[in-house]
């Protein structure tokens, strides 16, 4: 009996050392258990007095082997992992898998950014009609029919008094007619001018801003635009006002920002001047306020208007306005965020 046990111990131990997988070890264990069962079934043939001794031996044997199996299992698991690691080793330099989303158009991106900046300062967003009457686009904005300023803009007409708006300023009137001061609105949208060459597009976008309240000054305009410039470009961007003319503001100013490319030293982008013309602005003309039944002796205000494409071109370094309307996916995919 003892010999049988020792033979089995030797056989199983030897075989165990050969096992490399959990499966083989399991099969060996099953074999061991079967054999052990056989040995134990021989116990009934033993003399009664020998049985306890034998039982003890068998138990010790079983315990010993189980410990061995457990120890081997740790080793085999380790071996298996090593093998798995080796087998599953990949070329980590292969390209990653990307799920590509699309992108919003740079005009939308800039529009959103502008809205963010000004919404934080209390501006609501108003979108007026793109097809306007002569009154809202010109007359109410202090630009009567014989006004030479009408020559500054080539207007698309649909009927005698109906036109494609040439400026989002038209929205000013609609808001002031509807709401009483304090007014702070932004009016973004499509505008149209009969101009089509390398630097002009017959359709482009503007963002108009209007503030009307008591005691609004030119200094406030300067301060607000300075804030805009810092947020839209860099914290060191400076604002310069210089005299200009728009029929609907008085005084009117042209607003230049220090060149973001060279920081004002002068470069190709700013044509060596250190400044870039970005928008037009001014104090709302009294006649415009009167046209909207706002008392110009009680309220003052300022307005500014900028080309969204112009800001986008400056911000992203786009050099041709036409590319903005070609919708080439190689262009659009550069604005993923």
């Amino acid at each position: 009996m003892k010999e049988k046990i020792e033979a089995l111990r030797a056989e199983i131990t030897a075989a165990m050392a050969q096992t490399e997988t959990g499966r083989a070890l399991y099969e060996l264990k099953v074999k061991f258990q079967t054999e052990l069962k056989g040995i134990m079934s021989g116990m009934k043939d033993l003399a009664k007095e020998d049985r306890p001794t034998f039982g003890k031996v068998v138990n010790e044997f079983k315990q010993d082997m189980e410990e061995k199996f457990e120890a081997r299992a740790v080793v085999v698991r380790q071996m298996e992992m090593e093998k798995k690691y080796a087998e599953e080793r990949i070329d980590i330099t292969m390209p990653g898998k990307v799920y590509k989303a699309g992108a919003l158009h740079p005009i939308t991106l800039v529009k959103n950014e502008l809205i963010d900046i000004f919404a934080g300062m209390g501006f609501k967003v108003f979108e007026g009609p793109e097809i306007e009457t002569d009154y809202y686009n010109f007359t109410a904005l202090n630009t009567p029919k014989d006004h030479p300023a009408r020559d500054m803009q080539d207007t698309f007409y649909l009927a005698e008094n109906l036109l494609l708006r040439t400026q989002t300023s038209a929205g000013q009137i609609r808001v002031m007619e509807k709401d009483a001061p304090p007014i702070k609105i932004l009016s973004p949208g499509r505008v149209f001018r009969s101009d089509d060459d390398a630097t002009h597009s017959p359709m482009f976008h503007q963002m108009e801003g209007l503030v009307v309240d008591k005691g609004i000054t030119l200094c406030d305009l300067q301060g607000m635009l300075a804030e805009f410039a810092r947020k839209m470009f860099t914290s060191s961007t400076k604002v310069r006002l210089r005299p200009s003319y728009f029929p609907f503001t008085e005084p009117s100013v042209e607003v230049d920002l220090s060149c973001s490319e060279c920081g004002g030293k002068g470069c190709r982008l700013c044509k060596g001047t250190g400044w870039i013309e970005v928008l037009g602005a001014g104090m709302v003309n009294r006649r415009v306020l009167e046209n909207c039944n706002v008392d110009p002796d009680e309220y003052t205000g300022f307005a500014f208007g900028m080309g969204i494409e112009r800001i986008a071109m400056l911000k992203y370094g786009i050099n041709n306005i036409k590319t903005l309307f070609e919708n080439d996916t190689r262009f659009l995919e550069q604005f993923e965020d």
Binding site: K214, I216, T217, C219, D220, G223, M224, V239
Partner: peptide, 8 residues
């Protein structure tokens, strides 16, 4: 001088 809507 830049101011920030002191009165508004």
């Amino acid at each position: 001088e830049p101011t920030f809507l002191d009165c508004a």
